[in-house]
Structure formats: structure tokens, C-alpha cells
Design a protein around this nucleic acid. Sequence first.
DNA 1: TCACTATATTCGCATATACCCATATGGTTA
DNA 2: TAACCATATGGGTATATGCGAATATAGTGA
Lengths: 110, 110
Amino acid sequence: MQDLDLRQKAELLRVLAHPTRLAILEELATGAKCVTDIQDLLDIPQSNVSRHLSALRREHIVDFREDGNMRCYYVMRPKLVKGLLRFISGDYPAVPRSADSVRREGKRRG
Amino acid sequence: MQDLDLRQKAELLRVLAHPTRLAILEELATGAKCVTDIQDLLDIPQSNVSRHLSALRREHIVDFREDGNMRCYYVMRPKLVKGLLRFISGDYPAVPRSADSVRREGKRRG
DNA sequence: TCACTATATTCGCATATACCCATATGGTTA
DNA sequence: TAACCATATGGGTATATGCGAATATAGTGA
């Protein structure tokens, strides 16, 4: 298992797979915000916000522009974030299958 | 940050965010397979496959049907897996923004 | 220059994860 | 029943993660 493509995809997913980072992305999806804005909106420590933003930036999901001593973060891959938020909000019902249908499909061992 | 909904969504993403599990899902997406099938296809230790399948099952992403002494695993939430595989295969170009546009948007601090 | 604000980073710690190897469980077949 | 298959799980270990608290860095404005 050294498929580079899958590794990269998994790494991207991993960065997205954190409740605080999802919350940050939801906020940023509505418009650019600086660190303190996010801190106030989500009510979490500043260092925490900063860390999560760094993680998102490492994957080029967000970026920032400096404005005085503030940094305005924005979503740099809007399609990705929109796609993500849509994806995780979808309804994905479980479809149990009969032993028979599964067993027949599974008969591929020599 | 105790948003239960976001926690659950993040947890689901987290389970999906592993290269081996993605590979397993790609295989299962083409049809049900037993543990040894997957082990052979991906060339990874059996205990490893078994553990990843357990993780996927915990999130009700896959399930299995017993067939003799084998367990045929199948995708129990096909829409989720299809959606995932489509999502991670998409193209999401970076769209850098000017400091000006970001700064104006960010002016929401009182 | 000095106090203040905004942000990033380091430290220490607790917890989670993934892996390998070995073993347990239970069905299968000779 | 005995050897064998398929699968799950426990032990041990290395590594990663996330957090709070404290600190560092740098811009701002009096």
C-alpha cells in the first residue's frame, strides 16, 4: 500500500476530518474572517484557532491576506469546501443486503 | 465547540481518511469481497485488513454476510461511498484572492 | 518609545492511532 | 477427530494528534 494518490487524498480528508476545522470552514465559507473573529464566533482559544488554520493552510484549503496586524483568512479552494460541506450534509441511508446477493457477488476466489 | 452534528460528521470523515481504507472502499465499490480477497488484492497483512474493516463497520459504511467460514463484506451505504470517491477525485483549483477583496470582506469586527 | 493588539509557536502532557506478531475462535473437510 | 482455513483480537510499541498555558513576534497608535 504505497499508492501516492490515495495517500494524498487521505491526507486531505484527514485535515478536513476535525469538528473545529469543519466549523472554521463553515464560517469562512460565508466570508473572509480574521483569527480573532473566528475565535469569538466559535468561542475557542486563539492558539487553537491558529493551529487549525495552519493545518488548513498546509493543504492549501485556506490562505490569508495581511491587513495591518491582522490576517484575514479566506477559502482558497471554494469548490473543495463547497463540495465538502455538501458531501457531509448529504443523507446516506444504509442499504442492507441479503446474504444471497452478497455471497454470489463474493464468489471470486480461486 | 461541542456541536454534536459536526463531531459526527468529523468522525465519519476521519474513518474515511486513511489510504488503506480508501483502497478497501474502492475495491468493495466494485463488488462484495471477503477479507482474504482484499488481503490479496491490496497485499497487506490480514490483521490489518480486518481492523480497517471493523473501523468502517463501526461507522456503518460497510457490513458483511457470513458465508461458511468467510465473511463477505459489502458497501452498506453505496451513496456515501460513491459520493466520497467522486468527491476526492474532483479537481479543486486554488483561487487566490487580492488583499483588497479579502480585506473588505473581513471588515466585520466591531 | 511604550503599552496594546493580533497572531504564531513552543512545551508538556494525555490520548489515539496504526502497525506487527502472535494467538484465539470457529467453520470446513479429509 | 485432526489438520486446515478464514477471521478477529490482544500485546507491545512507535508515532501522531490535540489541547491549554505560556511565550515569542510583529504591527499599531498614543
